[in-house]
Computed example of a mutant assay.
Amino acid sequence: MTATTFRIGGDLRVGRLGFGAMHLPTEPAADRANALAVARRAVDLGVTLIDTAYMYGWGANEALLAEALHPYPAGLLVTTKVGVARPKGDWGLDGRPEALRAQVDAALGRLRTERIGLLQLHRVDPQVPLADQIGALRDLRTEGKIGHIGLSEVSVEELAEARSVTDIASVQNRYNLLDREYEPVLAACEKAGIAFLPWRPVAWGATGARDEIAAVAAEADATPTQVALAWLLGHSPVICPIPGTASLRHLEENTASTGLRLTPDQRDRLDWLRPEG
């Protein structure tokens, strides 16, 4: 039977289907009100893992989640990411230790917390030694500002290098039923017991168009999106998808996927799918 929870870093117990807050608009007022409602409804539906980042609105998304959810319910993990900056109006990577420290301190203020349970490096900055980037986060963890350290968009080699510096609790790479480029990274995470948080867990536009996915959805009385998420949850015990939406209807559709059990035959048919073209 597919486990419904996972312990990130061995101690942060979360439901395996999380919520990605990237798509929540912070303005104008009517859209912001809906975004607040979606974030609160996610928690009402039992979501205990919410993902954000400094890059999402340059801090505005973090502030939105704090407005919606602070004081945070017991057991809720709000994870954020640092390492992307906007020095001259456009975004770029900045993995300098002093920049990472400044972003973490600012995130603590926006999230209204003294400690971020899981802090992820949004991208590896190729201009800064990876050991220096991870070392800065390790120091912040020692100071009590971070609970666990995660990575995003990394290779197997980068994950191994980071783990030689300190413990890594999570990896957030692009991955879904039709995009399995990072299968080797997933395998490395599974071997080490590291949480794998696939972003873009549903292939936009493509999932519902594939005949096999549509057929399984019809058999299971589910939507193609629910089939794609259920496939992820059953594919590896370390996978914790973080689908995002600004729609209450889609949020409820996504969370309902935790109750969908694919048969071995259905799963086998989906396993053989690959991107077209």
Rank of each mutant, 00 (worst) to 15 (best):
T48D: 11
I50N: 02
D44L: 11
G46E: 15
E98N: 09
L49R: 04
V43P: 01
L49I: 06
I50M: 14
V84F: 00
A66H: 14
V82H: 01
T52K: 05
K88Y: 12
Y54E: 15
D94H: 00
T52R: 09
D44W: 05
L65Y: 13
K81A: 04
R96T: 06
A63H: 05
A85N: 04
A74I: 03
H70D: 03
D94R: 01
G83H: 00
R41Y: 12
K88V: 11
G75M: 09
R96D: 04
P87S: 11
Y54C: 06
W58C: 06
R86H: 13
A66W: 11
Y54V: 05
G89V: 12
I50Y: 03
L49F: 08
A42Q: 15
E67P: 05
A63W: 06
A68I: 10
H70P: 02
G46N: 13
V84H: 01
N61T: 09
L100M: 03
D51M: 05
P87E: 01
W91L: 01
G57R: 12
T80M: 13
W91D: 00
V78P: 08
A99S: 14
L69Q: 10
T48Q: 04
G57H: 03
A60R: 14
L76G: 09
R101K: 06
A53F: 03
L64R: 10
Y56P: 03
R101E: 13
A53M: 04
A74H: 09
L100D: 01
K88D: 03
E67W: 13
G92V: 01
H70W: 13
N61H: 02
R41E: 15
H70A: 15
G92C: 09
R86K: 15
P87M: 05
V47N: 11
L65D: 15
A68V: 11
R96V: 04
L69T: 13
R41W: 07
T48M: 10
G92I: 00
A99E: 02
R41P: 13
Y72M: 06
A42N: 14
L45Q: 13
R101Q: 07
E62M: 07
G59T: 05
L100T: 05
N61E: 10
A99Y: 00
G59A: 12
A42F: 03
V84R: 01
